[in-house]
Nucleic acid binder design. Structure first.
Lengths: 351, 351
DNA sequence: TAGGGTCCCTAAACCGGTTTGCTAAACCGG
DNA sequence: CCGGTTTAGCAAACCGGTTTAGGGACCCTA
C-alpha cells in the first residue's frame, strides 16, 4: 500500500467532475458565475475528494498572504517568556485578528535577521526594538514591504509608534526625589545588541537620559558606578542589584528599567534582610499585569504596551491597504502609577 | 512621480544581465553550475536592482514553507497574555528556530478555525488544547498536514504530547490532605468551549478526576457546590473564590487548576482579611515562572510547560522530515513543588 | 577527422491556483 | 425568424520562481 497519496489538486477535482479548472475555481470563489447545480456538484466532489485549495498557490496569484510579520532582533524563545512582549503581542494579535490577518513571528534565522525576512511570507511587518541603524530596515524598505517601527524613536519615512520613554523616566526619578531620596541607583536593560552600540538612540538610552536629567536638576550627579546593567528579567534584576550591593553601594532608592528587574531587585533586597519600601524604595517600568500583584505592589511607570501593538497594526494596515499616502507616526504617553514599593527615605539610616 | 514601482522579478534581473532566468536562479541556489565570473556578475546586478526572490513563488515549487503552525482554539489576544502559553511558545520557538523554522500562529478567523487553517502556509501544525472531538483535527489529517496534538490525551494515529494531569492533581490533593485539611474547594478552568461539552476528555476533566479520586480515597465527597469555575486568569481566580465565599463556603484549602487562578484566590482571601497559609492553604497548577515570586511563594504542581513545546516540535519535525513511520507519543511527568502557600489546617477555626 | 567529455548556459515544462477573453447555446422581444 | 442579450463554461495566459533535458563550444584522444 502506497501511503504517499499525492495531494489533491484543482485539476483532479476538475477531471472528476468533468469540468474545467476554471469551473472549479469559480465554484469556490465566484459561484455566481456558474449554474447553481453545477457549482454545488463541484463542491460536493471536492469535499469528497478532500480537496483543499493550496494556500501557497493562491497567494502567488493574489499577491497577498493574509499574514503580518512581527520582527524582533532577539530569539523568540527569550521573547515569549517576557510578559512585556506578551502584552505587546496580544495588542497586535487583537487587531490583526479582527481584520482577518494571521501572525507570523520573524526572528533571526541562524543568526541572520535578513535571511529570516527573506523567507517570511507576509504582507507587512511590525518591527519592535529595531533602531534606525539596523541595516535590516533598509532592506525591508527596498523590498517594498510595508513596515512600521515600534520603539525606534524615528520620524523618518517609515511609519512608527513610540512611547514617551524619557518623560516616563523623569516621572520615576521625580517621584523618588519628592520622597526625599538622594542616593539613587539605576538598573538598566542590557539587550543582546543594545549593549554594544553605545545605544544613544534606543529605549535604554532614552530612559537613562530621563533619569539622569531629572536627577541632575536636583543636583545629583549619577556616576557610572550607580548604574548596573543586566537582562530584563527577574534574575537579571536580582543580579544587577547584587553587584551594586556587593560593590558597597547602599542606595535608598532603585530605578529599574523594567518591572521584571524591579521584582528581581526587591527579592535581592529581601534576601539581604532589608524591607521595601521601609529601607529601600523601588520603581519599575512598563506596568505589566503582574506589577500590581507583587509583594509589595509595584510603583512603576505605566506605558500602554498593548496599545502600542494595536496602534502599530492599525498603522500597518493603513499602508498595506493603500489608504494614506504618507507614513503615520504615533507617540503614546506614559504615566506614573504609585503603589506600595516606594516610600519616604528612612530616618534611622541617617548617614 | 509613480511610486508603484513594480516588484523586481527574476526576469528583470535576467534581462538586465543578459542571461536566462535559469542562470539567475542558479546564481542564487546553485552557483557551482555557473562560471564563477558570471555568477558574481548576476549577483551584483540583482543586488543593485534590489532583487529579492519572492518567497511565495519559491514555496510553490519547493513544496515547503519553512514555517510551523501553532494552532489554538482561543483568540491570540487572550492567549498571549497567559504566561503558561508564553512558556509553551518559548519551548516551541526554541527548537523551531534551531531547526530553521519560523512560527505561524493560527487562531480562529472570524470565529472559524478551519478557515484559518486553510489560509495558513505551514509545513506542519502543533495544536494545543484541541480535544479529539474537534472536527478540525479530522480536517487537518485529511489534508495530509503533519500534526501533533498537545494536551489532548490521545493515543490514536496522530502524534501527541501529554502531561500526567491526573497524577499532578492527585499530588496536590494528597498534599493538603496530609496537612489535615478536610474542607477543600476547587477552582476549575472554564475555557471558551471546554465549558459546553461536558469536557470529560480535556485537561480540566483529567485534573478534576485526580482531585476527586484522591479526596474520595480519604472519604471526602466533593460536592458540586465545592467547585467554582472561571477563566484561567488572576481575575478569574479571584471571582471564582469570591463566589464560593459569598455562597457561604469557608474552606481551609483551595485547589486551583492554574497558578493565575491561585494567585487570584490568594488576593481574594487577603481582601477578606484572612491569611495564606495561616487561615487557608492554596495550591496552584503549572508552576509558571512567577509562582515563586508571589506573596507567599506558591505551592503548586509543576508541569514541564516549556518541555511540552519542545517535545511537540521534535515530534512534528520527525514526521515533516519523513523520519519515523508511526506517530510518536510522549507523556511528561508532573511533580509537586511545595513552597509557602500551604500549611497545616488552622486550630482556632475548629468548627 | 570522428567520437567522447566537459563546461556553461538555455528553452520549456512545471508547481497549483486565478483571471481574462471568448464562444456556443439558450432566451427574448418584435 | 432575426439581431441582441444572458447564461454557462472553457482554453490559455499568468503569478514568479525551480528544474529537467539538452545544445553549442571547446578540448582531448585515437
Amino acid at each position: 500500500m502506497e501511503q504517499i497519496t499525492r495531494r489533491v489538486t484543482i485539476a483532479d477535482v476538475a477531471e472528476r467532475a468533468g469540468v474545467s479548472k476554471t469551473a472549479v475555481s469559480f465554484a469556490f470563489n465566484n459561484p455566481d458565475r456558474l449554474n447553481a447545480g453545477t457549482a454545488s456538484r463541484i463542491l460536493d466532489i471536492a469535499q469528497q475528494l478532500g480537496y483543499r485549495p493550496d494556500p501557497v498557490a493562491r497567494m502567488l496569484t493574489q499577491r497577498k498572504t493574509g499574514a503580518i510579520g512581527v520582527l524582533t532582533p532577539q530569539d523568540l524563545s527569550v521573547i515569549f517568556t517576557n510578559p512585556f512582549f506578551g502584552a505587546f503581542s496580544a495588542g497586535i494579535a487583537g487587531v490583526a485578528e479582527e481584520s482577518g490577518y494571521g501572525l507570523h513571528f520573524i526572528s533571526p534565522l541562524h543568526g541572520s535577521l535578513s535571511r529570516a525576512i527573506n523567507r517570511a511570507t507576509v504582507d507587512g511587518v511590525v518591527a519592535i526594538g529595531l533602531t534606525e541603524d539596523h541595516p535590516e530596515i533598509g532592506e525591508i524598505r527596498r523590498a517594498g514591504l510595508p513596515m512600521v517601527l515600534v520603539d525606534s524613536n524615528t520620524t523618518g519615512e517609515v511609519a512608527s509608534v513610540d512611547v514617551d520613554d524619557e518623560g516616563g523616566a523623569r516621572l520615576a526619578a521625580g517621584h523618588v526625589l519628592e520622597l526625599g531620596h538622594r542616593d539613587v541607583v539605576i538598573l538598566a536593560i542590557d539587550g543582546p545588541r543594545t549593549a554594544s552600540a553605545g545605544d544613544e538612540g534606543g529605549v535604554v538610552g532614552r530612559r537613562l537620559r530621563g533619569y539622569r536629567a531629572t536627577l541632575a536638576e536636583a543636583g545629583i550627579d549619577l556616576a557610572d558606578d550607580g548604574i548596573a546593567v543586566g537582562p530584563a528579567s527577574i534574575a537579571g534584576g536580582r543580579d544587577a542589584f547584587a553587584r551594586l550591593w556587593d560593590g558597597g553601594r547602599r542606595p535608598t532608592a532603585v530605578l529599574a528599567m523594567s518591572d521584571a528587574m524591579a521584582i528581581g531587585a526587591i527579592r535581592a533586597i529581601h534576601d539581604r534582610g532589608r524591607t521595601v519600601p521601609g529601607d529601600i524604595s523601588v520603581v519599575g517600568f512598563d506596568d505589566v499585569d503582574l506589577a500590581e500583584t507583587t509583594d509589595p505592589p509595584l510603583t512603576t511607570v505605566h506605558q500602554p504596551v498593548r496599545g502600542k501593538g494595536e496602534a502599530a497594526v492599525r498603522l500597518l494596515l493603513a499602508v498595506i491597504e493603500g489608504r494614506n499616502a504618507s507614513p503615520g507616526h504615533r507617540r503614546l504617553e506614559t504615566r506614573l502609577v504609585v503603589r506600595s514599593s516606594t516610600g519616604p527615605v528612612p530616618r534611622a539610616t541617617g548617614r
